[in-house]
Design a protein around this nucleic acid. Structure first.
Lengths: 148, 148
DNA sequence: TATTGTTATACTCTATAACTATA
DNA sequence: TATAGTTATAGAGTATAACAATA
């Protein structure tokens, strides 16, 4: 029986597992990013969408959904929310699709979100000590792109 | 405007971000683990709980919740589910807490889950090429343990 | 026939509040 | 007063099915 009086005696058998540690590291970074973006009342996914439209002006919400792995149906409230806050302009291109661009306010929000994300990332790179963040990035890309 | 006829022209501004790539790598591994465990009708979190009780026989569900970052209230249906499948034995220790152990069937399930998880992990370590998985593991632990 | 945007809906995961019984 | 287990509930996030309009 585990000695529950001594928390250190409790063994965590999944700590040495790559997938679980990946998950914990991801949750730690996402929690920090979320906490950092709360000052501008923006969620990480909303910040991502602003950045995506910033570099891809005129894209559609279906484009964004494909890029981020979000279903069309779930893009609707996300775009509606950002639009209601005055961050987005919609222009018909097709008759069925809308070209999305950032308003001036939206561009300000994107720039601030980018700045906050930079600072967030810098904090974690410092934790890495001397290790190469780009090397880690490349390794993670290998894992993210794996298919069996 | 982004050339939506050519998907390659669509720029992903968060791909070079550590946190986002961490998230994508984590989702990729968790999806693979989930798909691998489906043959025994077990979710990753349930497999984790079996492993946790396996090395910490006699622990309580509150112990498990603390170890995995799952609230007491959300542990209830998890333990009830594993118990209903005949994987767990509960023995009163306290009057208010229950000591959890694996039944013979539960131990079989744990062993199989461990084996499936091993194979899953081996696949991803192969994707890493020559890179040191333990080094990556240690780096992820630094990120997971960071606090600001 | 395929795609865009949309609505409705359901399921999972997570979070809080409140209760009981025990310590 | 604090903890273990529990219930109810609410909020995200994610999934599918279906529809109208358009390509």
């Amino acid at each position: 029986m585990a000695d529950i009086q001594n928390p250190a005696a409790f063994v965590d058998p999944v700590a040495p597992r790559l997938g679980y540690m990946l998950r914990r590291a991801s949750l730690a970074m996402m929690a920090d990013l979320g906490a950092s973006l709360v000052v501008m009342n923006l969620r990480p996914v909303e910040a991502t969408i602003l950045m995506l439209i910033g570099v891809n002006p005129g894209c559609t919400q279906s484009d964004i959904g494909r890029a981020l792995g979000i279903k069309r149906a779930n893009m609707v409230p996300l775009i509606a929310g950002l639009s209601a806050r005055g961050y987005l302009d919609k222009a018909p291109v097709d008759g069925r699709s809308l070209a999305l661009t950032l308003t001036a306010t939206g561009e300000e929000a994107r720039a601030l979100a980018e700045q906050i994300t930079d600072a967030h990332e810098a904090r974690f790179k410092q934790v890495l000590g001397g290790q190469d963040p780009d090397g880690l990035q490349a390794t993670l890309a290998l894992i993210a792109g794996a298919s069996f």
